[in-house]
Design a protein around this nucleic acid. Structure first.
Lengths: 68, 68
DNA sequence: AAATTAAGTAAAGGTACCTTGACGTAAAGG
DNA sequence: CCTTTACGTCAAGGTACCTTTACTTAATTT
């Protein structure tokens, strides 16, 4: 699973801390997601996409290894 | 978080077990998601939406309580 | 009537997601 | 300088997601 959170966050000119506050999660969570440590939950992914005025599929894309 | 997995599954004429196999998870997982026991992970939500040829937002919708 | 299919519950165990707190580094701004 | 801002690591703890196994019920099907 790849994501473009960092890219869209910068495009919107906000910091990781700012995004964390707007989405209602901790700064660590944003860092971990941007660094690819783990995937966000579905509601968090939808809230992030919505904040950027994009679809979930634009921000997050499946990779081969996501299919079993 | 509400979802229309059951609705779209029936529209596509497949059983819970069939959907479980196509998405690579257990039948329990499908049951739990349809019953609203918990949300699917982001990759699973995307695989389900993709299988139904729909966007994640069409199958899953945020509710007030999803925002903190 | 007996077997199959589909949907459901429950429980136990493992891993993933998210939190808080402490700390480190580098780049500005005062 | 010293402080603030931004990004990062690490660790410990709690809850959510997903698994497997076993069992139940209702509606077909043979």
């Amino acid at each position: 699973m790849k994501n473009r959170v960092s890219e869209y966050r910068k495009k919107h000119g906000i910091s990781q801390d700012g995004l964390a506050q707007k989405t209602g999660v901790s700064r660590q969570t944003i860092i971990s997601i941007e660094k690819g440590k783990y995937n966000p939950s579905l509601p968090l992914a939808m809230i992030i996409a919505q904040l950027f005025n994009e679809s979930v599929e634009t921000i997050f894309t499946l990779e081969e290894k996501d299919y079993k």
